[in-house]
Design a protein around this nucleic acid. Structure first.
Lengths: 262, 262
DNA sequence: ATATGTTTAAAACGAACGTATGAATTGTCA
DNA sequence: TGACAATTCATACGTTCGTTTTAAACATAT
């Protein structure tokens, strides 16, 4: 009778551990359902976005019952977090593994910027070519979500990325000791943007613009994208420092030359 | 009686011209209402995204009646198109005006890449500092929407940008005759991404990453962003061409040097 | 002043949303 | 095999969505 009696069901968000008490073949079947949902959600969120993708759309595509999402994940919000978590865990572990390996080989010395950029963004693009860890679907979803306005998604992604970002940021500080930290941070941010657009490239290149790639470029294999992007990112990262207005002579630590034929 | 008799009202989407027959003070009041709606929608779409922003939220913020949106614009979809149109018309006209001016001054010769980049992306960032044409609110909305998965928005933006993109693309082709067109297209795309992230910079820099800008960087004035971004974009655009795999010696037309200390 | 067309106001519409419920089904182990 | 937990299923709930409707309020022109 009281207005409290609501929560005798739904003991908790019964995600992935509620079934470990007993059954074992059930676990297999349940995990199949879970993965069908995750795969469908991953693809649909990528194509239509989080808000525009309904539970019924997801469960329809996954060929499972509507209630299965709430049973396995608790809510739509928890579902997208799990969509990201299962891929980001792998991605960021791999990024750190590559970075650790490089730093071990450097014997305490600074890394080359190209190594850091490759560990960060090259790993991402290589992930896009590896279907066993989500392939291009997830990477494109990630690229789009980085600019998503949804508050809780951004908070979640920030938390998932915090440690990795810190490691790479500091690696760049050591690699470019003469460049102001704020400049490095901004350029890292610009690199994120360029990479994000690189990932969604095919879509956007035919979307925002209508430029048709010439026939010889039509057979773009995805592996051509990585060297293209790496050249661009390194060119941007190593560009001469800007002449900041109000501080006309800030060029003492420039790391390149800005000649005038451009 | 027949099942046709539905459409004697709502002659058409009565947008902005239905009232020009007669009243004149009415017109003023109506345009005030229209602009209040457009301003509120612009801000809310920027903050929450298209799907997550409801009509009631918009009309509440604009302090107009719920039905006013459908009366003035016809539908939510038509509303966001008008939100973009009133700003993009100005932006793209300005871009073309700057480009035309530069080309006139070049007397038929090619422009410098830095001129083209400035006309395209510099104009955008200068728009962000001009509140009379939407300021940072619209520019941030645009930056986010360029990666938005919503189909009809992308179609609309592609149409709005088509001519401008074609002009700038061809200007870059002429400015960099030795660089393969596909490479230019990709780099233009990378520049779009870097710029998009530059615009949403403050948000994302504190969102995805938790890096705190040092106190001396805290007073970042928005006008410092433009030279920063321009340096990065030009560095990326002018970077040495990538060594494409399978074609080890494609470097005949390289436009820079990629030394090895990086 | 009254007629006319335009804009606001308040309420309601059907559809679609995320979620919850309870019964049926399935798989596991005593 | 029967008890029991885990999962699936069909269905329904309460909200909120974009949109429509009807009447009142408003400004203008004759």
């Amino acid at each position: 009778m009281s207005d409290i009696g609501v929560s005798e069901t739904n003991i908790d968000a019964k995600s992935s551990d509620a079934k470990s008490v007993d059954g074992k073949a059930n676990e297999t079947r349940a995990n199949e359902t879970r993965e069908k949902i995750l795969n469908a959600a991953e693809r649909l969120f990528m194509e239509f976005g989080y808000e525009a993708t309904s539970m019924r759309h997801i469960t329809g595509e996954a060929e499972v019952n509507l209630a299965a999402v709430n049973y396995h994940f608790g809510s739509k919000e928890a579902l997208i977090q799990e969509v990201f978590r299962r891929r980001l865990d792998w991605l960021n572990d791999e990024r750190l593994r590559v970075l650790d390996e490089m730093e071990a080989e450097a014997n305490g010395g600074p890394l080359k910027p190209s190594q850091i950029v490759d560990a960060m963004f090259g790993t991402l693009l290589r992930m896009a070519n590896d279907e066993s860890v989500g392939g291009s679907t997830f990477v494109r979803l990630l690229g789009r979500t980085l600019t998503d306005p949804s508050k809780f998604i951004n908070t979640f992604l920030a938390r998932e990325h915090a440690y990795v970002m810190d490691r790479f940021k500091n690696a760049l500080f050591r690699a470019l000791p003469d460049v102001p930290k704020s400049e490095i941070i901004w350029r890292f941010h610009f690199m994120l943007g360029a990479t994000s657009y690189a990932i969604t490239g095919a879509d956007a290149l035919t979307g925002i613009t209508d430029w048709q790639l010439s026939p010889s470029d039509k057979d773009e294999r995805p592996d051509l994208l990585l060297p293209r992007l790496m050249s661009f990112l390194l060119g941007g990262l190593r560009a001469p420092l800007p002449q900041l207005p109000m501080f006309p002579n800030a060029g003492a630590t420039q790391i390149g030359t800005q000649d005038n034929i451009y």
